[in-house]
Structure formats: structure tokens, C-alpha cells
Amino acid sequence: MHAPSHHPAPLDSVTDLLAAWRAGDEAAPRALADLVYADLRAMASRRLAGGGAALQTTELAHEAFLRLLQKPLDAVDRVHFFRTVALALRQALIDALRRDHAEKRGSGLAKISLGAAAGIAVAGPEAWFGVEQALGELEALDARKCRVVEMSLLLGLPQEEIAQTLGISLPTVERDLRFARAWLRERLAT
């Protein structure tokens, strides 16, 4: 029942880091992001070891919550943690893209496919570079909208949960999403 191992597993530190973050420790968010990122990478590579299944961000996020959180979080920590996981996922996607890009460039296969009708790069994974850039711009203009998009798209949270986590009403989440999507689409087309 009481195993002799008296070392806390490294992942136990998530709650500690969140607490430190709340207490104003400037290094905490970065350390937390490191931890989540390393964990996401490990999970992704484990998925790949299984053979073939595509990496689903919402599933990875769900798994990250299960793995990293031993206790329910309070509201402030939830916002922080979701934010961290979303950032880590965005980072992971960009890294995967860069790697892929570098490999293709090496083999002379680089190509960017453009969706003719809307003028949006739809077919190739490179389209995500544009999305990432647009998300960055959206964040500068209206950070909350960026959070809402991240939670909905990357983390796969239902709208009710987004509303609850961010402390805003459900209609506000719907409006934010509606506008942010139109804005992102317009941004990607131009």
C-alpha cells in the first residue's frame, strides 16, 4: 500500500506550478509550459508508436488533463492550465509543421496547395502556418476571442464549459466564436 518510493513523480508539480503562478512567480508559466509540452510530445510519440493514428489535438488535450491533473482545479487555475495546454498544442503543431517542412525541402517535395475558390490554403498542412499567424494577430486585438477559439478548436471543449471557465455567458461565447471565425477566414483569405 505504501510503496517505498518516496519521490513524487515529476508530474505532481503541475498543481504546485499553478499555485506558484498564482502567487506571482514569473518563472512558473514557462516551467508549466515546458512540462505540458514534454508531456504532449511523449503522448504524441506514444500514439505514433501504436501505428498510424493521426494526432488529434482534442484527444491529446483531454489526455493531458487526465494525466496532469490529480485534483480538480479552481477557476483561476483552470484558465491558466487550459491556456498552457493550448499554447503547448500550438507549439507542438508548429514544430511538427517545421519538421515536416524541413524534410520536404530536403527532398525537393515542398509545395503549398491553395484552395482556389476562397483563396485559402485548405489542402496542405501549411495552411496551419497562416492560422497560427492569424491567431497571434487575433490575440493582440482581442485576447479573449483567441482563448475561445483555442478552447473550442484545439481543446474541443463544449461551449458551456468555455463559458464557465472564462466566466462569461454562453451567448457571449457563441458571438465570440461566430465573429472570430469570420474574422479568421477573412484574415486567411487576404
Binding site: A54, L55, T57, V122, W128, G130, L154
Partner: peptide, 11 residues
Amino acid sequence: ALDAVTGLARP
């Protein structure tokens, strides 16, 4: 776009 980028995963 998300599906395309996540499709980069290789077995």
C-alpha cells in the same frame, strides 16, 4: 487546417 496539420503524424 487543423486536420491537415495533425495528419503529419507518421506511424
